[in-house]
Design a protein around this nucleic acid. Structure first.
Lengths: 194, 194
DNA sequence: ATTTTTGTTGAATGACCATTCAATATTATG
DNA sequence: CATAATATTGAATGGTCATTCAACAAAAAT
């Protein structure tokens, strides 16, 4: 059990790391720079995170924990109201809240590490398993989908959402962006057709 | 117009960079390491690519050029036979040839740079526009889809393929991988339903 | 009150990095 | 053949990097 000071400092460091990584990218964010940003010597950072790799794993855990919470507002809403109309649900899937939650640049930087690090790959895999379970839970609440294979549906919706986020991150033009979102939403509605 | 030596050397350097980036990641591949790998002094690399950033942009162009060729075998097949059955077409979309063409780790590393570099973002955007045009061209050849909006279809198929590649890159288990591929293929078939 | 543990500092280390430069070799051009 | 342009070498530069260490300070445990 670590002290309050310890956990607070660790969080402070990881958040500082994240802040700088948003601006300069993970690869350009050194321990010295984090230290300067937070007004502490680099040696203090290494006291809490003995190696840079450990620091990076902790940043990834931090990010994945945030992402995991994406569906929780929908689930909460469902638990209280016992129902959410498909429209608000689909809107949530494609809302920009996701982007606010975590910086896309940092996210894909971290993601690219799965190809050279088994542990990171496993962490990402677990995240996605949980996200799909959440999605299934939401679909299971919908009376209209009672006859449907919601596990399969959640896979299919999931892949559209992931593809859409990847794809939309390249689109700069506002109108084009919204036109595409409509296309992808319709694609999900088609799947939800009872 | 640059000499043959010049273009050959440039290609050699970029390919060497790519080889090392596959193993160690872009961020861990220094100019010195590329030089050692190719048996040339780092100064020679900098003679052809004056800064590291320029070297990276050239690597990205190299990669994007390769990816652009993904659909060309299908298109060629179409041009000669004047027809491809949807099944072989969809199989191609999800075949592992794609992965052989370019390393996923390097690809997503490059992709993550779009969020901090406008030029790179534009390059990726252009690539994807062209890929979708290729996809549309393929769909337009299919008599059964004559009544359909193939531009829209290509967007929808594209987003599934992109999402699938993202998603599948986390799946290690062979059986699970193939089960998911079947799901995503079916999703595409549903869209192709006349 | 003393000891132990935890937190913090700042200086030092050697490795590696991108980049520069001047010198030399090779090739192309007149 | 002479000259100009291109290709290649190797050494040097200053900066940054992750990491180490010994010392000091504060807090907790005894």
């Amino acid at each position: 059990m670590s002290s309050k000071v310890s956990t607070d400092r660790k969080r402070e460091i990881i958040e500082g790391f994240y802040e700088l990584a948003k601006i300069n990218g993970i690869e350009n964010t050194s321990i010295a720079k984090i230290g300067k940003h937070l007004g502490m010597p680099p040696s203090l950072i290494m006291h809490y995170f003995p190696t840079r790799n450990i620091l990076i794993s902790n940043l990834i855990s931090f990010i994945l924990k945030r992402i995991l919470k994406i569906y929780t507002p929908i689930i909460k809403e469902l638990r209280t109201q016992n129902y959410t109309d498909p429209e608000t649900f689909v809107n949530r899937l494609f809302s920009r809240d996701w982007n606010l939650l975590i910086d896309d640049g940092v996210f894909y930087s971290c993601f690219s590490l799965i190809f050279r690090n088994e542990t990171i790959k496993r962490e990402f895999r677990n995240l996605h398993v949980k996200l799909r379970e959440d999605l299934k839970e939401i679909l299971d609440q919908d009376e209209n989908l009672k006859e449907k294979n919601t596990a399969l549906l959640s896979e299919q919706i999931f892949v559209i959402v992931e593809g859409a986020y990847y794809y939309l991150s390249m689109v700069e033009d506002q109108e084009e962006y919204e036109a595409k979102v409509i296309i992808f939403k319709n694609q999900v509605y088609q799947l939800l057709q009872p």
